[in-house]
Design a protein around this nucleic acid. Structure first.
Lengths: 226, 226
DNA sequence: ATAATCGCTCTTGTATACAAAGAATTTGAC
DNA sequence: GTCAAATTCTTTGTATACAAGAGCGATTAT
């Protein structure tokens, strides 16, 4: 479909940030990136502009672009907002889901079950994503779904760490089950609170992780604000 | 502060869209904009890239940029999400506001009162904005505040219409009073529900407006989706 | 020896030039 | 006269060139 270069570059760099190829705080040299991708600086800049508008990179005038380092506190805040949006989508889904939505939710839920049973974290990670997307769709609010997807993407790197934690996958799956039940029963408030907890707990776990880390290595590095 | 050209251009064009100088659906010709602002196409493109990432304009490959026309339904969805975010900020503010937050909220509230008393819609519009921003700040969640501000900006054009409606300004102010009361009393749930209604009602009113319009002029023009 | 200032280099920001893809118009054929 | 096809013209997308500011280092003066 004739995607323009800057569009591909945007995804490429975004992916690089999300997967950690470009680390938080790292300077993104335009010429360097241009050489790396075999293009001129122009489309690189355009890609960086888009990423800066999303909030993934920061462009300081005359001083170049750096990968934004949200800092533990802000990441926690992001999980809080995500929890609220997701729970909203769940509440809508409970009231508005169609038969197709139901099938999609149940199917992705079943896939999660298989992944959890076989202890396959990578596969669970992927199916979990599909499951949540199915809920966004079922909310029948295009805008809300977009916001959820955007947040989901931004938080991806921080969520990925979590499945490694002992038993998290199975606990996550049982939470899913409760969510599915509430949605299919049309119980909007139950869906809302269960989804809120399901997502918010990830923020909590992230905080735990960080505080453990900072206890061990007591260097004050990082991007805290408060 | 040495703001780079593209940054100023971004604000300029964004403002143009919000104030209706560039209408929804309008094509944004790069050369034309460049001439208009007395710059080359490069910074114009960079500004457009940023606006497209925010969702204000759409860039179709090889076919130029157009001002996004969300369509009534999507605008309503945006108000729904906005209501949820604002109510969240209100709940946080109730629990976490400091003395300075309290002063800021009360002061902007008082300004709103004066504007409402003198029936000055323009001034009320501005002070209302300050009032809401004060709540965002009081939430003490930097990320949430940013999201709220972004949504607030995007919905500005559709909110502006509403104050013209008979008595809306005074009703709005009395809603503010109830919200202030809940926040200062530390009642998070009351703050949440009151703010949710306060914002959601704007979506409702917008819907009413649209359905009235489409009843009158039954031409099917516009960007409806569903 | 240390600190401050001057100058050089490296990088960003903007303009321009060039190539390719669409859109529109004109011409030709039926 | 109308429709279709081809050519031209407009506009986007990318590369390159040029200007200006920020960082870094060296040199000099105290």
């Amino acid at each position: 479909m004739a995607e323009s270069t800057f569009h591909k570059l945007r995804d490429e760099i975004e992916n690089g940030i999300v997967t950690g190829i470009f680390e938080p705080g790292e300077r993104l040299d335009e010429a360097q990136l241009a050489a790396r991708f075999g293009v001129s600086r122009t489309p690189i800049r355009e890609a960086l502009m888009q990423l800066s508008a999303i909030g993934l990179v920061e462009i300081r005038p005359r001083r170049g672009a750096v990968v934004v380092d949200p800092g533990p506190n802000r990441i926690f805040e992001m999980f809080e907002v995500m929890a609220e949006l997701e729970s909203m989508a769940g509440a809508f889904a409970a009231r508005r889901h169609t038969e197709e939505d139901k099938t999609a939710i149940l199917e992705s839920h079943a896939r999660c079950e298989r992944s959890a049973a076989s202890e396959d974290t990578d596969s669970y990670y992927y199916n979990n994503e599909v499951f949540h997307y199915a809920i966004y769709e079922a909310s029948h609010s295009g805008f809300l779904a977009e916001q959820c997807v955007a947040m989901h993407r931004r938080l991806r790197p921080y969520r990925r760490l979590q499945l490694r934690v002992r038993n998290r996958m199975k606990v996550s799956f049982s939470e899913h089950a409760a969510i599915v039940e509430a949605i299919l029963a049309g119980d909007a408030e139950a869906a809302r609170s269960r989804l809120r907890d399901h997502v918010a707990v990830q923020g909590d776990r992230f905080s735990d992780l960080v505080s453990n880390l900072s206890k061990r290595e007591s260097t004050g590095a990082g991007g805290q604000r408060r």
